[in-house]
């Protein structure tokens, strides 16, 4: 079955000075989050703030369903809670509430009065393919566009060397449609990999001709 989906626009963010830097036309603030109300912003780390800024840039009217993927989520907070439990101490209600995978989209929906469907997922390394599949579902249901964001925050040091991680906080968001923008063409991958947001940004920048996840993805011409 053919998998027709189009890329209308995108935004990328990488913490600090790192390569690949997103193309200037697709960058957000280096220190994102200034548009968020301070009482909501305080609950988000830098990748969370970047994700919210990307969502606002690609969906300024809060019109479209949102899909957010992170392979690892906020491991720093989750591990801190596990360590507190091990010591027999009570855990922070704030950390508990923010450790659920959909907390970030929840904060965004409050900040931007977004009332469309939202969905958070983790896919063991297959996040990029997963957000496209989920976006396609919403589009087929009749939504004009879907915003799909893939982000990773700092990985707790205890996990270093135990899992794949981009090594730096980063986020990339795509506005996807059924048939406007550049077509995303898929084929069988030569070497299926687990792309992080860094590889997605690099591919969208045009630094690499294709992106290999579960499928090989290439950008067609408009």
């Amino acid at each position: 079955m053919s998998f027709s989906i189009h890329l209308e626009d995108w935004r990328g963010w990488i913490a600090a000075e790192a390569t690949p830097t997103p193309d200037p036309r697709h960058r957000i603030s280096a220190q994102p989050g200034n548009d968020l109300p301070a009482m909501l912003r305080r609950r988000l780390d830098s990748a969370g703030r970047a994700t919210c800024e990307i969502l606002a840039a690609l969906d300024p009217g809060s019109d479209f369903p949102l899909v957010h993927a992170s392979r690892h989520g906020d491991t720093t907070r989750s591990l801190a809670m596990l360590e507190a439990l091990q010591r027999g101490e009570p855990i922070s209600p704030t950390h508990f509430s923010m450790s659920v995978h959909n907390a970030l989209l929840g904060v965004h929906s409050i900040a931007r009065q977004h009332h469309r469907p939202i969905q958070a997922l983790g896919a063991c390394g297959d996040e990029f393919d997963a957000i496209l599949a989920e976006a396609k579902g919403y589009l087929v249901e009749g939504y004009q566009a879907v915003i799909a964001v893939f982000s990773e925050c700092v990985l707790a040091s205890a996990y270093h060397g135990c899992t794949e991680h981009p090594g730096i906080p980063c986020a990339v968001g795509l506005r996807l449609t059924l048939n406007t923008g550049q077509p995303l063409l898929s084929s069988d991958p030569a070497h299926p990999t687990h792309p992080t947001p860094l590889e997605v940004i690099s591919w969208l920048n045009g630094d690499s001709p294709y992106l290999e996840g579960r499928r090989r993805w290439e950008l067609g011409t408009t």
């Binding site: 009570p90 922070s92 209600p93 704030t94 509430s97």
Partner: peptide, 16 residues
Amino acid sequence: LGLDSIDALELGLALQ
């Protein structure tokens, strides 16, 4: 100040 219900729980824990 604009605190919310999660803050109330966090504050209760801090006082304890």
